[in-house]
Structures are given as C-alpha cells and as structure tokens.
C-alpha cells in the first residue's frame, strides 16, 4: 500500500511541478506534512545530497525520499511516479510536433522560443555564478566589494573557460579535474 501511495504522490508531484527539479520541493514538504514518511528537516539533507551528486535534482530527491520511506522498492515507486507524467506529456507533444513540424505557426513559435530559451538559460547561469563564484554573505561595504569574490573559484572558472575553448575534450574531463583541484586547493 505504501508503495502505491508513494507512486501516486510522486506522480502528482511530477504532474504539477513545472520548471525543473527545485519546483518539486514545495510538493515534498506537503508529502512530509501529510504522511510523515520523512521529516521536513531531513528534506534539507536530501536536497544537499541531491545537489552534490550527479543526476537531475528532482529525480535524486524522489529516489532519496522513496528509499527513506520504503527501501529499494520505495525509491523505484517514487522515481517512476515522478517521471511518468513527463514521459506521457512529452510523448503526446512529440507526436503532435512530428505531424505539425512544417506548420508555419509551429515554426513561428520556435523562431521566437529559441532566443527566449537562450535568455532563460543565461539567467540560470547567472544564478549558478551567484552561488559558485561570489559569496554575498561576506558583503560589508562597496569599498570592500572584492571580499565577496571567491578568488579560487573565479580562477578555476577562467581556467576551465580557456581550456574548453582551446581543447575540445569531453565536459566530464573538466568536471573531474575541477573536483580534484577543489580537494587539493581546499576550495
């Protein structure tokens, strides 16, 4: 029964959380309050782990919450529940787009959507900068504005930017290298 409820609750989360992994968080608080499967405090730990392990954050959260509640089967029930609405909705859209890909209105929409998505990803990149390159909590006054910059991170950022444009190695090469440098330099 718990497995079915897990599947059902995460199916609802997957269906209504629009806009990426973090959008699932309010739903998880709701589940925690409703069933008491995991505490609201443990959600913070789950989020920290989901953000520091590979994979989509929403999927990581569902796997963790499901595992805490019902072991291996619980985590499978929660994760499959979370992704099933996406798969169904996208399959329907993909079939429609396949049929109407030459339609001028579809083309007109995507002509405007491409720069829109480019801007949205650029804004998301700024958010990533905010957490990784600067530390706003260290802000005291504008005369000491450079204190908030994480010098090591900015140097590593510039280094990776330079290297990726000079050598076309696979992104994971730079990610692993940065992880090792992070440990050596105690970033």
């Amino acid at each position: 029964m718990t497995y079915f409820l897990l599947f059902f609750e995460f199916f609802k989360t997957g269906l209504f959380a629009v806009g990426g992994g973090l959008a699932t968080l309010p739903f998880l608080y709701n589940i925690s309050a409703k069933y008491g499967w995991f505490s609201a405090d443990s959600l913070i730990d789950m989020l920290a782990i989901s953000e520091s392990t590979p994979g989509p954050i929403g999927v990581n959260m569902a796997t963790y919450a499901g595992f805490t509640t019902g072991g291996i089967l619980g985590s499978l029930a929660a994760t499959i529940g979370l992704v099933m609405p996406s798969v169904i909705v996208i399959l329907i859209i993909a079939k429609i787009l396949e049929k109407f890909s030459e339609n001028v209105y579809v083309k007109a929409s995507f002509t405007a959507l491409r720069p829109c998505v480019c801007a949205l990803v650029a804004v998301a990149a700024l958010e990533v900068f905010k957490v990784s390159l600067v530390d706003l909590s260290k802000f005291t006054s504008f005369s000491k504005i450079f204190n908030i910059v994480n010098v090591k991170s900015v140097i590593l950022f510039a280094l990776v930017l330079f290297l990726t444009n000079k050598f076309k190695k696979h992104p994971i090469f730079y990610i692993i290298g940065a992880a090792i440098l992070g440990i050596i330099l105690k970033m």
Binding site: R114, A125, I180, G182
Partner: peptide, 30 residues
Amino acid sequence: FAENTYVIHAFNGIRAAVSALVVNAVVKLW
C-alpha cells in the same frame, strides 16, 4: 555525505567548472 569536507571541496571545484561549461552552452545557444 553532504557535510564531508572532501565532498564540499570537490563540489565547490565542480561548481566553478560547471559555470564555465554553462557559459559555453549559452554561447552555442546564442
């Protein structure tokens, strides 16, 4: 896991690299 010092250091490094990779992705999208 998330409080482990090595994990925190490694992840701070990863974040700096991912920032640079996302910049490249935005340039391609542009």
